[in-house]
Computed example of a mutant assay.
Amino acid sequence: MRHRALPHRPWPPKYIGTPKIYLATVLDAFSRRLLGYAMGEHHDAALVGASLKMATATRGGRKDGTIFHSVRGSEY
C-alpha cells in the first residue's frame, strides 16, 4: 500500500550516495544578522571555530563584552 502525500506531513530526509554536509552559523541575537558560517563534512569543534572566526572578522575583530551563547551542542 502506498502512502498518499498529505499536506503538513513531515518529509523524511533521503541520503542516496550523497555525503552529509554540516553547517555552523553565528547569528547576532539583536539584529538576527548572519555574522559567520562554515560548512564541512564533519560536525566538530573545527567547524564551529571557523564560523566564529568569520563572525569575528565580520564585526571588525575582537570586541570587549561580546557574549557567545549556544542553545545546544558540545562543540560550542
Score class of each variant (00 low, 15 high):
residue 67 I to D: 08
residue 57 A to D: 14
residue 5 A to K: 14
residue 10 P to V: 15
residue 41 E to W: 10
residue 73 G to V: 00
residue 56 T to G: 07
residue 47 L to C: 03
residue 42 H to C: 07
residue 47 L to K: 00
residue 2 R to Q: 06
residue 70 S to F: 00
residue 9 R to S: 08
residue 30 F to M: 07
residue 13 P to I: 13
residue 8 H to Y: 07
residue 37 Y to C: 09
residue 76 Y to R: 00
residue 30 F to S: 09
residue 11 W to S: 11
residue 69 H to R: 07
residue 74 S to P: 06
residue 60 G to L: 12
residue 50 A to P: 03
residue 30 F to C: 11
residue 36 G to M: 01
residue 64 D to G: 07
residue 23 L to A: 07
residue 34 L to N: 03
residue 70 S to M: 01
residue 9 R to M: 08
residue 33 R to P: 05
residue 34 L to A: 10
residue 42 H to D: 06
residue 70 S to Y: 00
residue 67 I to A: 06
residue 4 R to Y: 14
residue 35 L to R: 02
residue 2 R to S: 05
residue 14 K to I: 14
residue 47 L to N: 01
residue 25 T to D: 02
residue 56 T to W: 06
residue 66 T to G: 03
residue 44 D to H: 02
residue 7 P to F: 02
residue 53 K to F: 06
residue 50 A to W: 02
residue 10 P to W: 14
residue 6 L to A: 13
residue 13 P to D: 14
residue 26 V to D: 00
residue 12 P to I: 14
residue 62 R to I: 05
residue 37 Y to R: 03
residue 30 F to I: 06
residue 13 P to Y: 14
residue 3 H to N: 09
residue 30 F to K: 12
residue 41 E to P: 11
residue 65 G to H: 08
residue 11 W to H: 12
residue 24 A to N: 01
residue 47 L to R: 00
residue 16 I to F: 08
residue 4 R to V: 15
residue 29 A to F: 07
residue 38 A to G: 10
residue 6 L to F: 13
residue 17 G to W: 13
residue 30 F to P: 03
residue 55 A to N: 01
residue 17 G to Y: 12
residue 22 Y to M: 12
residue 9 R to G: 04
residue 34 L to R: 02
residue 12 P to E: 13
residue 1 M to W: 10
residue 62 R to E: 08
residue 57 A to Y: 05
residue 67 I to H: 04
residue 58 T to F: 12
residue 5 A to H: 15
residue 46 A to C: 04
residue 61 G to L: 08
residue 5 A to I: 15
residue 59 R to Q: 12
residue 66 T to Y: 03
residue 18 T to V: 15
residue 48 V to T: 05
residue 30 F to N: 09
residue 63 K to R: 14
residue 40 G to I: 03
residue 5 A to Y: 15
residue 56 T to V: 12
residue 4 R to T: 13
residue 36 G to Y: 00
residue 46 A to T: 07
residue 60 G to N: 12
residue 4 R to W: 13
residue 35 L to I: 05
residue 25 T to Y: 03
residue 24 A to T: 02
residue 22 Y to L: 10
residue 28 D to F: 04
residue 71 V to G: 09
residue 32 R to V: 03
residue 40 G to L: 06
residue 22 Y to G: 02
